[in-house]
Design a protein around this nucleic acid. Structure first.
Lengths: 295, 295
DNA sequence: GGATCTTACGTCATCCGTAAGAATA
DNA sequence: TATTCTTACGGATGACGTAAGATCC
C-alpha cells in the first residue's frame, strides 16, 4: 500500500515540528487527526517512522531517509499548483500573435499595451508576416492568433470577426481635396492615390469598391501601408488605408478624411480550429472585441 | 484552491489516454468519476484543461504546460513509495555494526552471511574497533549497533544481552593437558596460557575467575584473540578465548576444550538509547538473539 | 447505432473534530 | 499538574458507482 500526498504532507509537518501537537497546530487540524494519519502511514509502510519515547517522538532512520523524498513530493506539488495559479492570473504564459505590418505597427501595440497593463507579467510575442501568409503560418502552429484583413476560410482555421473597419484617406491639408470633411469615391478615382501593394486584399478591395481606380494611373506605389502613410504626409499623394493603420502621431498639417460611401474592411482573428485556445488568447480576443466594437 | 495528488493522477491519465473513457479504464474507476475529477480540477484552477470538441477532448495549452509539472509530481510520489517499499523489504538501507576484532572475525561474518541471505540487497558495514572504544563510537553515532563483551553502562546507550558465552581453551593435541575432555580452572592456573591484551575485559575476567593466573607467569602475551588462537595452533601455549572467537577452521591436531567450572562471558549489543533503531538493526538483533540463544 | 462526455442521485469510505484516557516529566 | 500521545465515537465532506441523458459521428 502506498502513501498518499496527504500522508506525505502530514509526515513532513511532523518531521519539521518535532511533535504531533505542533504539527497539528501548523496544519490547522486537530492533534488526534495527526496521530491517525501517522499511524496509517506506518501501517501502510510496515515499519514505524517514529519511536515513541517518553511522550516524545524520535524519527527512525527510515523516516529520515523518506524525509528527503517526501520533500521532493511537496516541492513538486507546490510547483504544480504555483504554475496553475500563475497561469490563472496570466502571470505565466505566452500570447503569440501574428499580424501584417500595418496592424502590427499601429493597432496591436496599442491593444497590447492596454492588455499588458492588466497582465504585466504575461509574455507576448508579436510576429509580423505578410497578410497573405498569415493563415498558413497559423495553420502550422507558428503562432496562436492571427489578426488579418479579409480572413481566409481554410477548414483548419476558425475565424472570429473583430468588427468592420473602414478605409480612410490620409492627406495633407494644402491638397485641394482636403478642404472638405469627407472624400467621395468619385473624387478618389482621379486623385493621386498611393497604390498599396500587389496582390493583397487591398488591391482586391479597390478593384471591387473603386473599380475606376487603376494601378497604372497611380504615380506612387508601395507595398506597406506605413510607407504609404509616410509618403502621404510628405505630400506624395493620398494614402487610402484601413483606419487602424493610420499612424498614431500625425503631423499637424495632415488630415484623415472618411470616404463616402464608406468602404468596409473586415478585420478578423484566426486560430487553429482543433487546437484549444490558451487563456491569454481567449482574454486577448475578448479585450480586442470589446475595444474594437465599442468605438 | 490547489489541486490534490488525486487530481494530478487523473489528469495525467487523461492526458496519456486521450479520452475520459480510456483513462477511467486504466485507473480502474468509472468514467463519470473521471469527469467529476476533471471538472473539479478545472473549477479549482479557474480555466479549462481540455476543449470538449465533438465528444472528444483536446488539451489546452495550459494543460500541456501543467502536464510536465504533473509528471514531476507523479514521479516524486512514485520514488517516495518505491523507497518506502524497498526499505520495508530491506532492499534499501545500511546496517552499521561495530565489533571488536575477535567477533568481527569469527562470529559476525557467519551471522552476517546468514542475515544477508534473507536480505541480499541490504548494505552492511562492519567496523572493527577495540572493545573498550566501541561504546564511545556508538554513542557518537559512528555505527548503529555495537557487539561487545562486558557491555558498558553509559546512560546514553541501551544494551541488550545476546546470551552468555563461555571461555574455552584451544590447545594442541600433543599437549599433556589435551588428553582429557575438559580443563579445570586449577589445571589452567599453572598451564602455559597465552595472555591476552592489557586492560580489556579479558584481563578483568581472568583476575576475577582465575585469580591464580598471573600475567607475569605467562610466557606469551598478545592483544588479539585471533593471534592468540594462531599461536596456540602452533603449540605456543593454550589460548583461553570466548568460544565465539575460535577460528572456524582449525588444524586437525588441535582441540577445543571447555573449562570447568565454566567461565561465563556476557555478550551484548549496544546502541544509542535515544535514537530509534533502523529496521535492519532491529531484524539483525532479532536474528542474532535467535541463533545465539538456540545453540 | 455506437461512441463519447455530462448530469443526477445514492452509497460508502475516510478524514476530521470533540471528548476522554494513558503515560511521562 | 501540565504536556504529549492514544483511543473512541460521531459527523460531514467527498469520492465513487449506477443509471439515464445529451451530443456527435
Amino acid at each position: 500500500m502506498a502513501l498518499s500526498a496527504r500522508h506525505v504532507e502530514i509526515f513532513i509537518a511532523i518531521m519539521r515540528a518535532g511533535s504531533l501537537t505542533e504539527a497539528a497546530r501548523q496544519l490547522h487540524i486537530s492533534q488526534p487527526a495527526v496521530t491517525k494519519s501517522l499511524q496509517h502511514a506506518e501501517q501502510r509502510l510496515g515499519y514505524p517512522l517514529f519511536q515513541r519515547l517518553g511522550g516524545r517522538l524520535q524519527p527512525t532512520p527510515e523516516a529520515k531517509a523518506l524525509f528527503k523524498a517526501a520533500q521532493d513530493v511537496e516541492h513538486s506539488l507546490q510547483r504544480l499548483n504555483q504554475l496553475g495559479l500563475r497561469m490563472a492570473a496570466l502571470e505565466h504564459g505566452m500570447l503569440e500573435i501574428m499580424a501584417p505590418p500595418a496592424l502590427a505597427q499601429e493597432l496591436l501595440p496599442i491593444q497590447i499595451s492596454q492588455f499588458q497593463q492588466n497582465y504585466p507579467q504575461l509574455q507576448i510575442q508579436l510576429n509580423v508576416q505578410q497578410n497573405a501568409d498569415i493563415a498558413n503560418h497559423i495553420a502550422q502552429g507558428e503562432a496562436e492568433l492571427g489578426i488579418v484583413h479579409f480572413p481566409t476560410d481554410a477548414p483548419e482555421l476558425a475565424m472570429e470577426s473583430l468588427g468592420n473597419s473602414s478605409i480612410v484617406a490620409l492627406i495633407r491639408q494644402e491638397h485641394p481635396l482636403a478642404s472638405s470633411d469627407v472624400l467621395t469615391r468619385d473624387q478618389l478615382i482621379n486623385a493621386p492615390v498611393i497604390w498599396c501593394s500587389g496582390n493583397t486584399w487591398w488591391a482586391q478591395l479597390m478593384a471591387r469598391e473603386l473599380p475606376g481606380l487603376k494601378r497604372e494611373k497611380c504615380q506612387n506605389q508601395v507595398n506597406y501601408f506605413a510607407v504609404a502613410c509616410r509618403m502621404a504626409t510628405q505630400g506624395l499623394g493620398i494614402a487610402l488605408v484601413d483606419r487602424y493603420s493610420i499612424p498614431y502621431l500625425l503631423p499637424s498639417d495632415c488630415k484623415v478624411l472618411p470616404v463616402v460611401p464608406e468602404i468596409h474592411v473586415s478585420l478578423g482573428i484566426i486560430y487553429r480550429r482543433y487546437q484549444a485556445l490558451s487563456q491569454p488568447a481567449k482574454l486577448f480576443i475578448k479585450a480586442l472585441r470589446k475595444t474594437m466594437f465599442s468605438d
